[in-house]
């Protein structure tokens, strides 16, 4: 138990240091660009645009941190929030790995497997994006191929293939608590089909938790 606390504590200590470093790196990017191009932007323009998107993004960011942190584990959270694409890549990847390794998400084994999975996913994704961007920059024919009518619509379906495959394993195991959220979300979308995915995830998670809570209290699950 003492070891357990020590490991998690060090994850938080290092995680915080990396977060602060990441903050510096992220802000250094526009600063270095502005300095090198000798083109510091008008503060009024930045402030106006930032104000409009902060209202949109910041509440979602708070919800995301609270919703994903318990599922990702400590190490996984520090890593995921630096590289992004959490709901559509890092979280399903970590959950799939924990499922395969047969470890619980809230155990130390789960913490370790989740961190290994998310770190590997982050490295793979970063390298693939880098390779593709270099090819895009130097090979217009490849860029045209990736934007072709045959391939472009397929790339828009990748998220559905991830969640379809995950649904197959989760819904089979937890079919009782799955029916309500999927039916409720589909119904909501019939009336408000262009609802933002961040809000939809929040609504889906809350409805699913409420449904499972009621079923648990009624001893249906």
């Amino acid at each position: 138990m003492k070891n357990n606390r020590t490991y998690i504590d060090t994850v938080h200590t290092y995680g915080r240091i990396w977060c602060i470093a990441a903050l510096a790196v992220i802000l250094a990017v526009p600063a270095l660009m502005s300095w090198h191009l000798n083109a510091w932007p008008d503060i009024g323009i930045v402030g106006k645009a930032f104000g409009s998107i902060a209202i949109l993004f910041y509440p979602t960011a708070v919800i995301e941190v609270l919703a994903y942190a318990p599922l990702l584990g400590a190490g996984g959270t520090y890593l995921s929030f630096l590289t992004g694409n959490i709901a559509n890549l890092k979280l399903p990847c970590a959950l799939s790995s924990m499922e395969n390794a047969k470890v619980r998400s809230n155990s130390e084994e789960g913490e370790v497997i989740s961190t290994i999975s998310i770190a590997t996913s982050a490295i793979t994704t970063t390298l693939i994006i880098a390779v593709f961007v270099v090819i895009f920059a130097f090979n217009p024919k490849f860029t045209q191929l990736m934007q072709s009518d045959a391939l472009a619509p397929a790339f828009k379906q990748v998220t559905y293939t991830i969640f379809g495959a995950l649904a197959a394993s989760y819904f089979v195991k937890h079919w009782k608590i799955s029916i309500f959220p999927i039916a409720a979300i589909s119904l909501i979308l019939v009336f408000a089909g262009n609802i933002q995915i961040g809000i939809l995830i929040f609504v889906g998670v809350v409805l699913s938790l409420l449904g499972a809570h009621v079923m648990y209290k009624l001893k249906w699950v």
Binding site: I177, G204, L207, A212
Partner: peptide
């Protein structure tokens, strides 16, 4: 599991 099923539901929906 319920939290993750909520996430899956959002994308499948």
């Amino acid at each position: 599991a319920a939290a993750f099923i909520g996430l899956i539901s959002a994308f499948l929906g």
